[in-house]
Every structure is written in structure tokens, then in C-alpha cells.
């Protein structure tokens, strides 16, 4: 565990240097948020109106959280890196190292995005506050719980993207899988809460990764209840477990394949 913490720390240090990237990244985040704020403002003719159970302010805070989760994730970078590792054969150098590739990649990427995540979170809160005037009614402990679910959500996202990228072991170009996943998250998990979809669909979505990587934390933030917090955290832990095992399986199968081919 200690070595992973060290990897995270080193990554954070080296990334502090790229403050410009974070700043410009935030501008991108702000623009997207701004567009969606305008969209919801246009849709809600009366701010007190409820659409699918959400008030305008709830919808906007929902988007603030899901966009932080999505934009700070750096999924494209992770996808490109792992696909390149596989294609270049770098991944096999890691076989002899005293840590697992999955653990190593997870900690490097977490370290890579942690600073960005914190900055986005703070600036996102500020942006929401400026646009909406007030926070949803949450006490400090509840905020901490939301932050924990956001952290767990990020771990799941990273593991899922890793699994999708490791498919590069078996096909030439695995990036389209990532595109489709990212678009699914964007449409089904970022812009709209699950309640916006037809009822049958909602049941499926409740068991899909969308529930744990974006809907869960955002829903908690705009409409907190201890019961749903517990459900979400348990679901997240199960997901981390499953996603990790899937990554390991794909990785082991892939490495074996490379060895067989003498790659």
C-alpha cells in the first residue's frame, strides 16, 4: 500500500507544475456548465417548477457534480496511455516489477488527476454558487459523504476505462470502445438524471455503472438521504471489486496472448 501512496504523491508533485493545464481545463469545464445552465434556464419557465421531480436549482447542481466527475477524470488520456502501453509492448516490462500493472496504473492516474479534481471541485462549487446564489441544504458531514462517493466513483470510472482500454490486447484499435462509453456516460449520466428516462429503462440504469459513477454522487448532493448514501456506497464497493477483477482477468489473458505470440 505504501508504494502506491508514494506513486500518488510523486504524480501529484509533478502535476503541480502543469497549473496551466488545470486552468485551461477549468475554462473548458466552465463553458460546458455555462451551456447547460442556459439550457436548463430556458427549459424551466418557472424556477419553482418541477421536471421529473427536480427543481431548476437541483438540475443545475446535479450537472455541476456530474461534470466535475467527468471533466476531472481525464479518461481520454488514460485510454490513450493504456492503449499505447499495450501496443508498444511497454506493458510487458511491468510483468517483472513488484507491483501489479492495474494497481500501478490506477495509482498513477489517481495521482495525476487528484489536484485537478480538487481544483475543479472548489471552482465548480464557486461557479454553482455564483449562478444559483445558494448551496443545496447539506451539513458538513453530508458533504464529506458526497465527496467520498465522488472519490469512489472516480476509482470505478478509472477501472472501467482501463478494462475498455485493455481490450487493445485483442483488437488493433480499442479507442472506439472508449468513445461509446464516454458518450453513454455523457448522455445517460451527465446531462440527465436517471428519472428523465422511460420507467423500464430506469430499472436497467439503476444497475448500470451510471448509477455508481455519476448519478449516485450527484443525486446525493442535490437530494441527500442517509439511506441512499448507504445504498450508493455499498453499490460502489461492489463495483470496485467487480471492475478490478475484470481488469485483472483481461490483463492476464492479454499478457498470456502476447507471450504466446512472442510479442
Amino acid at each position: 500500500m505504501k508504494k502506491y501512496l508514494f506513486i500518488i504523491k510523486t504524480e501529484i508533485m509533478s502535476n503541480l507544475q502543469y497549473i496551466f493545464n488545470v486552468i485551461f481545463g477549468y475554462v473548458g469545464y466552465f463553458i460546458l456548465l455555462f451551456i447547460l445552465f442556459n439550457l436548463w434556464k430556458y427549459l424551466y419557465s418557472d424556477p419553482n417548477e418541477l421536471i421529473n421531480g427536480y427543481s431548476m436549482s437541483q438540475m443545475m447542481w446535479y450537472v455541476v457534480i456530474t461534470e466535475i466527475l467527468w471533466m476531472a477524470l481525464g479518461g481520454k488520456k488514460l485510454n490513450t496511455k493504456i492503449c499505447n502501453d499495450v501496443k508498444s509492448g511497454n506493458i510487458t516490462y511491468n510483468i517483472n516489477k513488484p507491483y501489479s500493472y492495474i494497481g500501478y496504473s490506477l495509482s498513477t492516474h489517481l495521482g495525476d488527476i487528484l489536484v485537478k479534481g480538487v481544483v475543479y471541485f472548489l471552482l465548480g462549487m464557486l461557479t454553482g454558487l455564483i449562478f444559483l446564489g445558494k448551496f443545496p441544504s447539506l451539513n458538513i458531514i453530508q458533504v464529506i459523504v458526497v465527496i467520498i462517493t465522488m472519490f469512489l466513483a472516480t476509482i470505478i470510472s478509472i477501472l472501467i476505462i482501463m478494462a475498455l482500454s485493455l481490450v487493445a490486447f485483442f483488437i488493433e484499435d480499442a479507442t472506439p470502445f472508449y468513445w461509446v462509453y464516454s458518450k453513454l456516460i455523457l448522455i445517460l449520466g451527465t446531462i440527465f438524471p436517471i428519472e428523465y428516462f422511460p420507467v423500464i429503462f430506469q430499472k436497467i440504469l439503476n444497475f448500470s455503472p451510471i448509477y455508481v459513477v455519476s448519478y449516485g454522487p450527484a443525486k446525493l448532493f442535490v437530494d441527500f438521504s442517509w439511506k441512499s448514501a448507504v445504498v450508493i456506497i455499498i453499490a460502489q464497493i461492489i463495483y470496485i471489486f467487480i471492475a478490478y477483477i475484470i481488469c485483472q482477468i483481461i490483463y492476464k489473458k492479454g499478457v498470456k496472448r502476447i507471450n504466446v505470440n512472442g510479442g
Binding site: I31, L32, I35, N38, L39, K41, Y42
Partner: peptide, 10 residues
């Protein structure tokens, strides 16, 4: 990003 939303919302 902007180009996929109609200008009426701005």
C-alpha cells in the same frame, strides 16, 4: 460544444 446547442438558449 456550443455549436450543438441552438442559439435560442443564449
Amino acid at each position: 460544444n456550443v455549436s450543438t446547442y441552438p442559439d435560442s438558449i443564449f
